[in-house]
């Protein structure tokens, strides 16, 4: 009996592979959301496990805010190439230029502007399903999310009217214009993700490990100093996100625990150089991963409101 036993990571892996194959079997034009962050790194390995030796039967899609860590972009492009996958990138910049996304006056973060760009990409490529790396342990509103999360013609999530999900039978049927978000990592925790990355020996962007960086203090967090404003003929994309005189720059040894973009990611002071170090640090952590995300602190229902509007 004991040899027919799966440990918790093997269980989660098998469940996620099953979900990915249901996507391939049920949808005509799926896409996989790949940002280069740790969760979507796991998604890519799971896609390999689900579909090899064949090709991964869907393109990768990334929505750029324009404030990304350069290390993340490099990694994303390299990894997609290694896997021989098609990588589609749509940017908030282009959407603003077209008038599809309109920044709120005084708001520098483009977090919320990703939503119209994502919905635009879904429409442009007629995607009927997007696989994402969201986990239920991240946030309270996410805890109510299904594996197969139905979105109406406007991309909206209606938490009170979700399809019941019973056993491992996922109802993937859609009418014209509707689409599905699918979350194979629903049952994974932050710890599971890192244990899986360690077990599979997956490469991650270097910013997950400790490095020296110029930071400044704002809103109780260490934020990275944005890159210099290179092209003076254009408006500064980081206007408002640069440190003021009252926010002195400090050189610190830091890393990221979760990655949004440079504006909404708090750096944590840390000295970790290996996956073992990261796992020990998370095990001892006294705040959640999202505790360092400025985008979630807006209000108690910040995530719920963004999800209803069609966020990832």
């Amino acid at each position: 009996m004991s040899s027919y036993h799966l440990d918790h990571l093997q269980h989660l892996e098998s469940e996620a592979i099953h979900v990915m194959r249901e996507v391939a079997g049920e949808f005509e034009r799926p896409a996989l959301l790949f940002s280069g962050g740790k969760d979507s790194i796991c998604l890519l390995r799971l896609a390999e496990k689900a579909f090899r030796p064949a090709e991964i039967p869907m393109p990768f899609l990334n929505i750029e805010t324009g404030h990304e860590f350069p290390e993340l972009i490099d990694f994303r492009d390299r990894r997609a190439k290694q896997l021989g996958a098609k990588l589609i990138i749509r940017t908030v910049d282009a959407a603003i230029a077209r008038g599809d996304a309109i920044p709120k006056p005084g708001v520098v973060s483009r977090n919320q502007l990703q939503t119209p760009v994502l919905l635009g990409a879904i429409e442009e490529f007629k995607f009927d399903c997007c696989i994402g790396g969201a986990r239920r342990d991240e946030e309270k509103a996410r805890a109510k999310e299904r594996f197969f999360s139905f979105r109406d013609g406007f991309g909206q999530w209606d938490p009170k009217n979700q399809r019941p999900e019973i056993w491992n039978l996922y109802n993937a049927r859609l009418n014209q214009g509707e689409n599905m978000r699918v979350f194979p990592l629903s049952n994974w925790t932050e710890m599971d993700v890192w244990e899986y990355i360690r077990k599979e020996k997956l490469e991650v962007p270097t910013i997950y490990f400790s490095h020296e960086r110029d930071c400044f203090r704002r809103g109780g967090q260490w934020l990275p100093e944005p890159p210099a404003h290179a092209d003076a003929t254009k408006p500064d994309p980081y206007a408002g996100a640069r440190p003021t005189e009252k926010e002195p720059i400090k050189r610190l040894v830091v890393r990221v625990r979760t990655i949004a973009d440079m504006i909404s990611t708090g750096m944590i002071e840390s000295k970790v150089h290996s996956f073992d170090d990261i796992i020990s640090e998370i095990a001892a952590a006294r705040v959640t991963e999202r505790g360092s995300r400025a985008d979630d602190k807006a209000s108690e229902a910040a995530m719920e409101d963004r999800k209803k509007a069609g966020y990832f």
Partner: peptide
Amino acid sequence: DVAYRYFATPRRK
């Protein structure tokens, strides 16, 4: 609605 929660002890997830 159904809310999912996760925790682990050294013995089980």
